[in-house]
Simulated assay, not measured.
Amino acid sequence: MTDLELAEAIARQAGELLLGLRGCGLFAGKSLGRAGDRVANAFILEALREHRPGDAVLSEEEQDNPARLEARRVWVVDPLDGTREYGEGRADWAVHVGLSVDGQPALGAVALPGLGEVLGARPRPLPALGAPLRMLVSRTRPAKEALAVAEALGATLVPMGSAGAKAMAVLRGEADVYVHTGGQYEWDNCAPAAVALAAGLHVSRVDGSQLVYNNADPYLPDLLICQKQLAPRVLDALRGEAGVGTAQQG
Rank of each mutant, 00 (worst) to 15 (best):
G82F: 09
G82W: 07
T83F: 14
T83I: 13
T83S: 15
T83G: 12
T83A: 13
T83M: 11
T83R: 15
R84L: 11
E85W: 15
E85H: 15
E85T: 14
E85A: 15
Y86S: 06
Y86E: 03
Y86N: 07
G87S: 10
E88N: 06
E88P: 01
E88W: 11
G89N: 11
G89D: 11
G89A: 15
G89R: 14
R90F: 15
R90E: 13
R90K: 15
R90H: 14
A91H: 06
A91T: 14
A91M: 05
A91N: 09
D92W: 13
D92F: 09
A94R: 09
V95D: 03
V95W: 06
H96L: 13
V97W: 13
G98P: 01
L99H: 07
S100N: 07
V101Y: 09
D102P: 01
D102F: 12
D102Y: 05
D102V: 03
D102E: 14
D102Q: 08
G103Q: 03
Q104P: 00
P105Y: 04
A106L: 12
A106V: 06
A106N: 02
A106P: 00
L107S: 06
L107Y: 04
G108C: 09
G108T: 07
G108E: 03
A109K: 05
V110C: 10
A111K: 02
P113H: 09
P113I: 09
G114H: 11
G114W: 08
G114N: 08
G114V: 03
L115H: 13
L115E: 14
L115G: 01
G116W: 07
E117S: 09
E117Y: 08
E117C: 11
V118R: 05
V118D: 01
V118C: 04
L119M: 13
L119P: 00
G120F: 09
G120Q: 03
G120A: 08
R122E: 03
P123D: 12
R124S: 11
R124Q: 15
P125D: 01
L126K: 06
L126Q: 02
L126H: 03
P127I: 03
P127Y: 06
L129H: 07
L129E: 07
G130R: 15
A131N: 05
P132F: 14
L133D: 10
L133Q: 12
R134C: 00
R134M: 00
R134F: 01
R134A: 07
M135H: 01
M135V: 00
L136R: 03
L136N: 02
L136T: 06
V137M: 13
V137G: 11
V137R: 13
V137L: 15
S138N: 15
S138K: 13
R139P: 00
R139I: 08
R141I: 04
R141D: 01
R141Y: 13
R141S: 05
P142H: 11
P142A: 09
A143L: 02
A143E: 02
E145C: 05
E145L: 05
E145R: 08
A146R: 00
L147E: 07
A148V: 06
A148Y: 06
A148W: 07
V149N: 12
V149F: 14
A150F: 10
A152M: 04
A152W: 02
A152F: 08
L153T: 07
G154M: 10
G154P: 00
